[in-house]
Simulated assay, not measured.
Amino acid sequence: MSERRGHPKEIVEDIRAAERLEWWNIGWTITIIAVMGLAMGSSQAMRTAWVEDALGLVPPIAFLVAARYEERASDAHFHYGFDRVNGLGFLIAAVALAAVGLLLFKDAVTALTTAEHVTIGSVRIWGHDVWLGWAMMGAQAYATIPPLIIGRKELPLAKRLRDKLLHTDALMNKANWQTGVAGFLGVAGLGFGWWWADSGAAILISASIIWDGWKALKIATSELVDGVPCALEEPKLSAEAKAVSTALRKEFPKSKVLLRETGRYIRAEVIGVKAPEEFDTKRFEIPGLKDRWRLESIAFRP
C-alpha cells in the first residue's frame, strides 16, 4: 500500500508486515507439503490434509500479487485503479477452497461407504520393524505448528486492514492446523484397528473446508458485483459502512445513499442532491468511523 493515498503510517506498516508474513507463510507451507507428501502413504486423512496444505498456497500468493497491483496508479485502461484486485484474489481463494473441499468430501464419503480398509505397513530399520504410522503422525504434528503461529499473527493484521483476502488466509491456516490434529487422530485410530477413523477424520476436515469456502464465496461474490461493504466474517453490512450511511442520510435527508466496496475501500454515492460547494470527503464528519482511510470517495448525482 503506497503512501501516495495518504494512509496513516501504522496502516502502511501493517501492510508491509502482512507481506513479510505471507512470504514466511509460503516458505513454511512448501516444507509442510514436502514432509506430508513423503509420509502420506495410502491414508485418506493424510491425502486430504496434503491437498489442503497445497491449497494453502493460493491465498498468500494472491495477497502478494494483489498488494503489488494496488500500488499502481490508474491508467488509460483502468481509470479507477486496481483496488478490486484484492477482491479478485479473495474470490479465487474462496472458489478453490470450496471446490476442493467438495471433491475431498466426496472421496472420503466414498471410502467410508465402501468400507475401504486402509492399511499402514512397516519398514525394517536397524533390524527392527517400525510402523510407518509414526512417520505420518510426526508429519501431521509438524504440519500444525507453522499454520498455528502464522494464522494467529494474520488475524489482527486482517482486522486492522479490513483485508478479507488476508482474513481468509488466516482462516485457512486455522483449518490447516486443525486438519493436522484431525489427521493425527485418524492415523492413530488406524493403529488401534479402527478402519473407519481415517475416512471419518477426512470427512470432518473436508466439511470444515467447505463451510469456510462457502462463507468466503458469498462475501467475495457480493463485493465483485458492487454489493454493500460486508463485515470480515459474514455477508452483512460492516460497521464502517453503517457509520458512513447514517452520517450521509442525516446530512442529506431527502437523498438516496448507495454504498459499494472495492477491495478494502468504501465508496459512497448520494443520489438526488447537488454536491455542496467546497465539499471535502476527508473533512466530512462521520461519527463512529474509526478507520477514516477506508472511505475512498463520496460522489453526488443530482
Rank of each mutant, 00 (worst) to 15 (best):
R4G: 01
R5N: 08
S42H: 14
S43F: 06
M46Y: 09
D53C: 11
F63D: 02
E70D: 11
S74Y: 09
H77N: 15
H77V: 09
G87R: 05
L88V: 15
L91P: 10
A93N: 13
L97Q: 12
A99W: 04
L102N: 07
D107I: 04
V109S: 04
V109T: 13
T110C: 00
T110E: 13
G121P: 03
G121D: 07
I125D: 07
G127C: 07
H128G: 09
A141S: 11
P147G: 03
I149K: 03
R160N: 10
L161R: 07
K164S: 14
T168P: 01
L171A: 09
W177E: 03
G180C: 07
A182F: 10
V187I: 13
A188T: 08
F192V: 06
G200T: 06
I209R: 00
K215N: 10
I219R: 00
A220G: 02
V225G: 01
D226K: 06
G227D: 05
A231E: 14
K236N: 10
K236Q: 12
T246E: 15
T246C: 09
K256L: 08
V257F: 00
R260W: 14
R267E: 14
V270Q: 03
K274M: 07
F279Q: 01
F284S: 08
E296K: 14
A299N: 11
P302H: 10
